[in-house]
């Protein structure tokens, strides 16, 4: 009952953001395919690899949209419940852990709307396209992966925002400083630079924490 109430108010708060992200995710694959032209004019590049290249461009764009969606949905919902020092949220007769779980869970559930946008967008982009032999489209896999990336971004953002509390601006500045420092050290030919490079390589390898973002994203593959 309470979770449904959270779900309902999250829909009211998030519907505009969800609509914008969903439209972006529907339109982007078709837009990329149209600009490239290969899907609809196979004579431009009759090789199978051209299809895969377009599929990767679409996959990359979906990954960026998914990160943005997770970020926007997490921050929007969190900002409303924390307004005025969260006085209203804290005055409700529900323990904090359950309240946080309900809030995070209801925001997370609504991510299925933009994920549906990925599925629809991929199918729209592939409408009337005849793929060469040995080449396949994977709209469902791309949708699932986008949903996972949105959820991943949402969960990390929500957790960081909660942990930062009132010090969110300072934490944000610290994160910016850390990114700058990592960039600087990884570019310097020192032992520290090499260590930072190794750490970055571990972060972005397929089994690493950021592997879901940095590994290959594509709508079309062999």
């Amino acid at each position: 009952m309470r979770f449904l109430a959270w779900l309902r108010v999250h829909w009211i708060w998030l519907r505009t953001a969800l609509a914008v992200c969903s439209i972006g995710l529907i339109v982007t694959p078709t837009l990329i395919a149209r600009i490239d032209g290969v899907f609809y004019s196979p004579q431009m590049a009759p090789w199978a690899v051209s299809y895969v290249r377009v599929g990767e461009a679409i996959g990359g764009a979906i990954a960026v949209w998914s990160i943005l969606t997770g970020l926007i949905v997490a921050l929007t919902g969190y900002a409303i419940t924390e307004a005025q020092s969260a006085v209203y949220t804290l005055s409700l007769p529900i323990d904090r852990r359950t309240s946080l779980l309900h809030r995070a869970g209801s925001g997370l559930l609504w991510l299925f709307v933009p994920a549906l946008g990925v599925f629809v967008g991929a199918h729209v982009a592939l409408l009337g396209v005849v793929l060469p032999d040995h080449i396949e489209a994977y709209p469902f896999a791309l949708t699932l992966r986008a949903f996972l990336l949105m959820s991943y971004t949402f969960a990390i953002t929500f957790a960081l925002r909660y942990a930062a509390g009132r010090r969110a601006p300072q934490v944000f500045l610290l994160a910016l400083f850390l990114f700058g420092a990592i960039g600087f050290f990884s570019a310097t030919p020192t032992d520290a630079g090499a260590a930072v490079q190794r750490a970055l390589a571990w972060l972005v390898e397929p089994a690493g924490p950021l592997g879901i973002v940095t590994s290959r994203w594509t709508l079309i593959d062999v």
Binding site: R2, R8, A86, P93
Partner: peptide, 25 residues
């Protein structure tokens, strides 16, 4: 509880606020 300053959720209507609040009591 009536707080010093309203901290009710922005974006909700009066009816939606009542429906949300009711679910906790």
């Amino acid at each position: 509880y009536v707080p010093e300053r309203s901290a009710l959720y922005a974006g909700l209507s009066v009816e939606e606020t009542l429906r949300f609040h009711r679910s906790f009591y």
